[in-house]
Computed example of a mutant assay.
Amino acid sequence: METADREPDPRFTLANERTYLTWLSTSLALSAGGVAMAAVSADVFVPWMRTLLAVVLVALSALSAAMAYPRWRRVQQALRRSAPLPPPAIAPLLGYGVAAVAVLALMLILLSR
């Protein structure tokens, strides 16, 4: 049985908003990392790998930004209904994606020395 919508405690609403803004900040950082990777000198990484890393970072940025508002909305609805909070579906993808970029970049740094 679903309870009627009610206004949640403002502290929870504000915490949800801060989380939403953090997803957007993460998106901006990923985008900046992708642009920085694309701007790295051609003699540092092979061009195709530099492009691949930049594309993956910017794609993760777009995904994070695109999923931030739906996540905020689902959490807000759960708060209003006193329902369990939905899991952050994007978190594993971002975590593994950033880890893969970091491992590839580390390998390229070590191999280029």
Score class of each variant (00 low, 15 high):
105 A>L: 02
11 R>N: 10
47 P>G: 00
85 L>I: 06
96 Y>L: 15
52 L>E: 07
94 L>I: 08
30 L>Q: 12
2 E>Y: 10
44 V>G: 10
11 R>I: 03
43 D>A: 11
4 A>N: 09
21 L>I: 13
51 T>H: 04
41 S>Q: 10
84 P>Q: 02
62 A>W: 02
47 P>K: 00
91 A>I: 09
27 S>M: 02
68 A>G: 05
87 P>C: 06
54 A>M: 00
89 A>E: 13
83 A>H: 03
30 L>N: 11
49 M>V: 12
77 Q>S: 13
94 L>S: 01
59 A>D: 06
21 L>E: 04
108 L>V: 00
6 R>D: 08
65 A>D: 05
51 T>E: 08
36 A>E: 13
100 A>D: 06
103 V>Q: 05
59 A>H: 04
92 P>L: 03
88 P>R: 03
4 A>Q: 06
9 D>S: 08
28 L>N: 11
66 A>G: 15
16 N>C: 02
94 L>N: 05
40 V>P: 03
66 A>D: 04
70 P>K: 05
39 A>R: 11
13 T>E: 07
3 T>R: 15
56 V>T: 12
99 A>M: 08
14 L>Q: 12
58 V>P: 01
93 L>C: 11
47 P>V: 06
18 R>D: 08
89 A>S: 13
13 T>Q: 08
111 L>S: 09
106 L>K: 02
67 M>C: 14
102 A>E: 06
57 L>A: 15
72 W>N: 03
58 V>I: 14
13 T>H: 06
33 G>A: 12
35 V>D: 06
94 L>K: 10
39 A>Q: 15
33 G>I: 00
4 A>L: 06
101 V>I: 08
67 M>R: 15
